[in-house]
Amino acid sequence: MGTGNYDGGYFFEGELLLLDLESGTATSLIEDGPGRQVLGLEWLDDQRLRVLTAPPDDWDDEDAWTEGHIAVVRRADWRAVPPRSVPRTRSWPAHGWRPRARTAGSTPAGRSPG
């Protein structure tokens, strides 16, 4: 599940939470810091989750309110994902991308993992 908002002055903050429906536990996945506002999520398959986030802030970024950044997070076993294990890195702009699916090592979209 993705959350987030604009803090009113500079940052787009939020969380990416992985909710285990069997145990009821939630794990915050974005590494330490203010997090990132999550605008959309789409499961691509059982191991890959496409995440659309807002830019980290609106400093010198006229497009911060109209574009997002896409990363594809791949994990072999989502139940074993440690907390704060998804980096807060910038990825490529995603003009007009709209999620169509459900909520809840990172590789930028279009690249295969190392």
Rank of each mutant, 00 (worst) to 15 (best):
A76M: 03
W43S: 08
T27Y: 00
L19W: 14
V72N: 04
P93Y: 14
Y6T: 07
M1C: 11
P99V: 00
P55R: 04
P99T: 01
V38E: 06
G33Y: 05
L44M: 14
G9V: 10
D57V: 02
A101I: 07
P82M: 00
L19Q: 04
H95I: 11
D20H: 05
R48L: 00
W65C: 00
M1Q: 12
A64N: 07
L39P: 08
S85F: 04
R75V: 07
T89K: 01
T3F: 15
G114C: 07
H69V: 12
T89F: 09
L29P: 01
W92E: 14
S106Y: 10
N5A: 09
I70Y: 02
E31D: 13
D32Y: 05
T103A: 04
D58V: 02
N5I: 11
E13C: 05
L44E: 14
G114Q: 09
L18C: 01
G96C: 10
R102P: 03
A76Y: 05
P55E: 02
L19P: 01
G40S: 08
Q47R: 13
D20A: 02
S112T: 15
P83L: 00
T103L: 08
R74K: 12
I70F: 02
E22Y: 08
R48A: 12
G14C: 07
G68V: 13
P113Y: 10
S85Q: 04
H69D: 04
D60S: 10
Y10Q: 11
S23I: 09
R98G: 07
F11C: 02
V51M: 04
Y10G: 03
V51D: 02
D7H: 13
L49D: 05
G40R: 01
T66S: 13
T89P: 00
R75L: 12
R100H: 11
P34G: 03
D58W: 08
R79Q: 11
A76L: 12
L29Y: 02
R79N: 10
G35I: 04
Y6I: 06
G14S: 04
D58E: 06
G4T: 05
L39M: 13
S106R: 13
W92A: 13
P55W: 11
F12N: 07
R74E: 14
E13M: 07
H69G: 08
L16Y: 06
V38Y: 09
T107F: 14
L29A: 00
S106M: 12
S91Q: 05
R75K: 11
D46H: 06
A64K: 10
G2W: 02
D77V: 06
S112L: 15
P93F: 05
P56W: 15
M1D: 15
R36I: 14
R50W: 10
A104M: 11
L19N: 01
R84Y: 15
L52R: 01
V38P: 09
V72Q: 01
R88A: 15
S112E: 13
R36H: 06
R48H: 13
D58L: 11
P55T: 02
F12V: 08
D77I: 09
D46F: 04
L39Y: 00
V38T: 12
L21G: 12
G96I: 15
L16G: 03
T66K: 11
T89M: 03
G68Y: 05
R90S: 09
G40D: 06
A26M: 12
R100G: 15
D57G: 00
L21R: 14
R90C: 04
P82F: 01
H95Y: 15
E22Q: 13
A64P: 06
V81H: 01
